[in-house]
Design a protein around this nucleic acid. Structure first.
Lengths: 171, 171
DNA sequence: GCAACTGCTCTCAATTTGAAAGCAGTTGCA
DNA sequence: TGCAACTGCTTTCAAATTGAGAGCAGTTGC
């Protein structure tokens, strides 16, 4: 573990961990998409190619952002899990989504989740993080009632997609 | 302005704007270091090289993250200014700094600012953003009393540096 | 027994990165 | 009036990274 860092500034070090065009998208798909397997992550909106995905997963594991384990149901399957470090990025994801929604040409269906995260605020983020800890770290569930945050976000997304499909038919 | 975006997801679009190893560091130096000129930005902690800096400044201007204007005091000097879009990154910077401070091997002097930003919370961030609007957008100052947020952060940084120098002498 | 699926790896071209030197001016000072 | 220091870059060229696509050695389900 040599210090080949450009500087010991927290922002710089953060960028050295996920300051590239793909790492945060992988983490996004794990957090919001619930993806855990290589082939799932390969089917990203943005079309990451397999060599890049393999490389990023490897370095994210090396940096403690993910862990990798065997899937008991299939000898060739690997399961990737978030660590506390990565779960702690949820508020940053929320801010990033809110910022992008405000200043960049997002689509409605792909930003509805960001909107709900923004409206939900820190309380929703905390609930989401707790659910991720249960899912990825084996923490015991604290409030087991109702749909999960991810399910709620996903349902909203699908509703927008359905509405848009209906609107397209009316042309 | 063609849509050559990978996807219209807010997180992806955000990453297309500043998802690289240098752009956010430039913005960091402008926000926290008060830097406005090319040669100032060239003297970053991390040692950016001039061709990369020139390229990033150009694309940041093209994307509306910065504006560039002439310095009346020197015919060859350019002044780079933040836009509202970039000032709105202050909370993300604060979160990023807090995250890095918690999970990565930061140094005390380079993370004291992040600590104060974290402790100050949204109220401090808003005050800082207001000051940046005055400095970069020509907004009229709202609360003109006392030292600026940047001055406060800078003073704390220098205090740590001075203390560490003293401690080194005692060896 | 075979198609579909598993997490990758390999190849090779294209792009990006980066250090370093240099440049055409401008400015401040002696 | 000269000259050193400074201005925002640009150029050069090697090295590293990126990326699409094909392929692979197995595993699994039917």
């Amino acid at each position: 573990m040599t210090d080949d860092h450009r500087s010991a500034c927290p922002i710089n070090l953060s960028l050295e961990v996920f300051g590239d065009k793909w790492s945060l998208l992988i983490i996004r798909d794990m957090i919001f998409g619930g993806k855990r397997h290589f082939r799932e992550l390969l089917r990203s909106q943005e079309g990451i190619s397999s060599n890049i995905l393999a490389d990023r997963l490897k370095t994210l594991v090396e940096m403690g952002m993910l862990t990798k384990s065997d899937d008991p149901s299939h000898k060739q399957k690997a399961i990737y899990s978030l660590t506390e470090m990565t779960i702690a990025l949820v508020p940053i994801m929320a801010h990033l989504g809110a910022w992008g929604r405000r200043y960049l040409p997002v689509s409605e269906e792909l930003s509805i989740r960001a909107q709900l995260m923004e409206e939900g605020g820190p309380e929703l983020w905390e609930r989401f993080m707790d659910e991720l800890r249960v899912e990825h770290l084996g923490a015991s569930p604290s409030a087991p009632e109702g749909p999960t945050v991810r399910q709620t976000l996903q349902a909203a997304y699908e509703q927008v997609v359905a509405r848009k499909a209906r609107e397209r038919e009316l042309v």
